[in-house]
């Protein structure tokens, strides 16, 4: 109870602090300009004119080793001139295809005004910045980017992608999770738990299950349902079996935590309590298994509690195709 009260107090404090923060944010935004000061500068805006010489203009300042190096772009697919779709193909807009008309930015000698920097600090909203990317990349999984979870949460393309890197870390299995963990901190901890999918071992990426560019399934999965996603690697559990276990056919995550768990096989809870959440028929399934069932505890019933517990006998928990498998024991 004390813990509960403490948790409630912490929640209230956090809530109050947060509301204060939001109020301050709204106030800060609406604060009138100091009357005694100079007239405020016009708000930053995108330029409307392109540069005279395209990338050659940009590269006069954006030199190798400078504060804003860009040259690695020429090692990427965006700079393949033979591909007519790319920004650097003849006749295309080069740097300004993604960053917008750059004359205003160049004439000002740089700075954030007039250009889509694609950075978090840009005066453009993430949606406005993303529009430049979606001009070309609205196909494939990005068809449903609009109003996806990431879009709605103001994730910009450049929040995850490094366009100017020779190798974009988010596109490689071993390095992708670190990119996702920037926002998904809880998931980093999940994959450090004793039982996990092999993400922290570099053998599995978040995108093996999730479609970060937009998916209408629960959890932005690569397939329309949880189970269809799981079956891409666990087709042996697909069936349909003669004797199905209803929750297994419905949703693997009813029993398993896909990211990680303290229990073996990523189970949300260990048997017998896991099973007793849903099974309370007369006889052994309904019996409370207490520490008296431990070795030396004095009570029998160790077979129901230890080793595999319920699975000591009902091992066909994912379904059985055996004619006598109705109890998932064959």
């Amino acid at each position: 109870m004390a813990n509960g009260q403490t948790t409630m107090t912490i929640k209230k404090l956090l809530f109050a602090a947060l509301l204060s923060g939001f109020a301050f944010g709204a106030f800060a935004a609406d604060k009138p300009a100091d009357k005694a000061a100079e007239p405020p500068a016009p708000p930053p805006s995108m330029g409307t004119e392109y540069t005279d010489t395209g990338a050659d203009t940009c590269l006069m300042c954006h030199v190798e080793g400078g504060d804003f190096p860009v040259h690695a772009i020429f090692k990427t697919k965006h700079a393949n001139r033979a591909d007519k779709r790319t920004p650097f193909a003849p006749g295309n807009l080069q740097c300004e295809a993604c960053h917008g008309p750059g004359k205003k930015h160049a004439d000002a000698g740089g700075g954030p005004d007039g250009i889509n920097s694609q950075e978090r600090s840009s005066f453009l909203t993430p949606q406005q910045r993303n529009k430049y990317c979606l001009e070309c990349h609205q196909n494939g999984p990005r068809t449903g980017w609009h109003a996806s979870t990431h879009d709605s949460n103001n994730v910009a393309c450049a929040s995850c992608h490094k366009i100017h890197a020779e190798r974009d870390p988010v596109l490689a299995t071993a390095t992708q999770p670190e990119v996702c963990y920037k926002c998904h901190r809880k998931e980093r901890a999940d994959f450090s738990k004793p039982s996990t999918h092999p993400v922290r071992f570099g053998k599995m990426a978040c995108s093996d299950c999730h479609s970060p560019h937009g998916s209408t399934s629960t959890g932005m999965l690569i397939k329309p349902t949880v189970n269809q996603t799981c079956y891409t690697c666990h087709a042996e559990k697909r069936g349909p079996f003669l004797w199905e276990h209803a929750p297994v056919a419905e949703d693997c995550t009813l029993c398993h935590h896909p990211h990680g768990s303290v229990n073996p096989a990523r189970l949300k809870k260990n048997p017998p309590l896991l099973c007793q959440q849903c099974h309370s028929v007369a006889g052994h399934p309904s019996v409370a298994r207490t520490p008296a069932g431990l070795p030396g505890g004095g009570a029998g019933g160790q077979a129901f509690l230890l080793a595999g517990s319920c699975l000591n006998c009902h091992s066909q928990i994912h379904g059985s195709n055996h004619p006598s498998g109705v109890k998932l024991m064959r």
Binding site: G47, T48, E49, Y50, T51, D52, T53, G54, A55, D56, L59, M60, H71, F74, K75, A79, R81, F88, G91, N92, L93, Q94, E96, P101
Partner: peptide, 18 residues
């Protein structure tokens, strides 16, 4: 959108294509 530029002079001479 902004008017399309004339890219005839966009030589990309500083571009170090791999």
């Amino acid at each position: 959108g902004p008017a399309a530029p004339d890219t005839a002079n966009w030589k990309c001479e500083s571009c170090k294509f791999e």
